[in-house]
Nucleic acid binder design. Structure first.
Length: 274
DNA sequence: ACTCGCCTGTCG
DNA sequence: CGACAGGCGAGT
């Protein structure tokens, strides 16, 4: 569910609430996720550790404590919430970190496609899920990476944007939006696009991501995404094509279409995307 | 380069 | 009841 703007929104609510705080206790039960979650490991390694920073690369959060580090991914349905007790624990809460300062971090993930992995700080760089990522989509070198890969790739451009090894952070919503804004059809082979159009796509993707961050992310009508402070994002009202099948395109009036490709819904306007 | 599986929940 | 969901990776 969460893409770069949603993860960044979580990061920005986590940072002021918890940086500088020290872990006082851990609870949770072992559970199978994308990577197995082992609260006992957290208990032995994280209790007493002070949180130094919360970083992000693509859709991954990187929490650096003194002595230990954690990499978190929210998968499709993950949420991180800050609570001040007393609070009821929501269903599917797999890990709770209690801080000395009185706040709690709750990691909730019904579908369990996410993970919360603990490791030594020096292991973060070589941690497999992170090591395989391309540059973060907001970094200056991301546009360059897109150009370089697209030039020699026959994949549909939509698939290339979703490939986290090319650039990290774009998911199904923002791929659709960036392609619509730059007037590119999602099915176009990457290598068939001119340098100019690819450069434009890079700029547009960056724009969309920044606007979405400014809006606090996208909370669809199911209310699935909320930040760590419980607030919803309001970028959904600004989506041009995603989740708008059948509506009139704001730019050309044509009906927005949905097509299923590789098991994912792809939204686009055939009137103004070529 | 695609399909499927991993899970639970919601909607039509 | 089936279809579908902001992700990802193991299989062909």
């Amino acid at each position: 569910m969460p893409e770069l703007p949603e993860v960044e929104t979580v990061r920005r609510t986590l940072d002021p609430a918890l940086v500088g705080c020290r872990v006082a206790g851990v609870s949770g039960r072992p559970v199978k996720m994308r990577l197995p979650l082992d609260p006992a490991l957290w208990e032995s390694q994280a209790v007493g550790a002070r949180l130094l920073s919360v970083g992000r690369h693509g859709k991954y959060l990187i929490c650096r404590f003194d002595r230990v580090a954690a990499v978190l991914h929210l998968g499709m349905s993950g949420q991180i919430k800050i609570h001040t007790p007393p609070t009821a624990t929501a269903p599917h809460t797999h890990l709770v970190l209690r801080f000395e300062e009185g706040r709690e971090l709750h990691f909730v993930d019904p579908r369990r496609f996410g993970f919360a992995a603990l490791m030594a700080p020096e292991q973060v760089a070589s941690f497999e899920p992170l090591a395989r990522l391309g540059p973060d989509a907001l970094e200056p070198e991301a546009a360059e990476a897109l150009l370089r890969t697209a030039r020699r790739s026959k994949v549909p451009i939509h698939a290339l944007l979703l490939d986290q090894g090319v650039l990290a952070g774009i998911g199904n919503i923002y791929a659709a939006e960036a392609l619509h804004r730059s007037g590119i059809h999602p099915g176009r082979r990457a290598s068939s696009l001119s340098h100019g159009r690819l450069a434009r796509l890079g700029e547009t993707a960056r724009e969309v991501l920044l606007e979405a961050i400014a809006a606090g992310g996208t909370t669809l009508s199911d209310g699935g995404f909320v930040a760590a402070d419980g607030r919803q994002g309001y970028f959904a009202v600004r989506l041009a094509v995603y989740d708008r099948e059948g509506e009139a395109c704001q730019r050309c009036g044509e009906r927005v279409r949905r097509r299923v490709l590789r098991g994912r819904s792809v939204y686009f306007c055939s009137g103004c995307q070529h």
